[in-house]
């Protein structure tokens, strides 16, 4: 595929479907903060009750994610940052976009392995996800890693939206790009906050459930 189309596809997939799924994920998780395990489980159930869920997961999440992530690593590799001599806000965002992209990709692979893949293996059920998350984030090291992961992902999402608008010629002039900077950076703060609050919510005792999965998960994690 010619570079132009490869890059355009990378940019498009970042927003449709990945950014949309990211927002959906933020909302489902926020259910944990808003209404505890009941609300969170209702959200998880709602998604998993969708018809053709297997196809949806692959077409709307895994395949775009793999393409966006692998091509993104190539973009990050091609960069030669020069922030020392060009100490500008946009240039820092250029660098952060690549750093958070790599962090997010690694984090997502780990996160999917710990959660969704354990369901595939049969170690956890969908109803057990809340207590699984509880067990993960009550460990300080994993809690910090999850914080780094969600903040990185939120930045990459919001700043990526900003550059998407430039790459598709929607925000052309300096004023449009400045306004979209404010909007996107606000979005970064809001979404990051939503994820952080959900992580905090998962630490609450109400998500603790004495059951067999926890031991299984513990054996996976150790």
């Amino acid at each position: 595929m010619k570079g132009y189309y490869a890059r355009k596809l990378h940019s498009l997939l970042g927003v449709i479907p990945l950014a949309l799924f990211f927002i959906e994920h933020a909302l489902t998780n926020f259910g944990a903060f808003e209404g505890g395990p009941e609300r969170f489980n209702a959200g998880v159930k709602l998604l998993n009750d969708l018809p053709l869920i297997f196809v949806l997961e692959w077409v709307l999440i895994y395949l775009p994610l793999i393409y966006h992530g692998v091509y993104g690593l190539y973009i990050a590799y091609q960069a030669k940052p020069n922030n020392g001599h060009f100490n500008y806000e946009r240039n820092w965002r250029y660098l952060l976009q690549r750093i958070t992209g790599v962090i997010t990709f690694v984090y997502i692979i780990w996160h999917v392995f710990e959660t969704r893949f354990q369901i595939t293996l049969g170690n956890v059920t969908h109803e057990g996800l809340g207590s699984l998350m509880h067990d993960i984030v009550t460990q300080p090291v994993f809690f910090i890693l999850y914080l780094i992961g969600v903040v990185s992902a939120s930045f990459h999402f919001a700043n990526g939206l900003w550059s998407f608008l430039v790459a598709w010629g929607i925000t052309v002039g300096p004023r449009a790009q400045r306004v979209s900077s404010y909007v996107c950076m606000t979005l970064f703060v809001l979404v990051a906050l939503m994820f952080i609050l959900s992580l905090v919510a998962f630490r609450r005792a109400e998500f603790q459930e004495a059951s067999v999965w926890i031991d299984t998960v513990k054996s996976v994690l150790s």
């Binding site: 570079g3 500008y88 946009r90 250029y94």
Partner: peptide
């Protein structure tokens, strides 16, 4: 739109 064309921009805006 050829290789090495406009897709190479990374929006650092330096």
């Amino acid at each position: 739109m050829q290789d090495g064309g406009i897709e190479g921009c990374g929006n650092s805006q330096n």
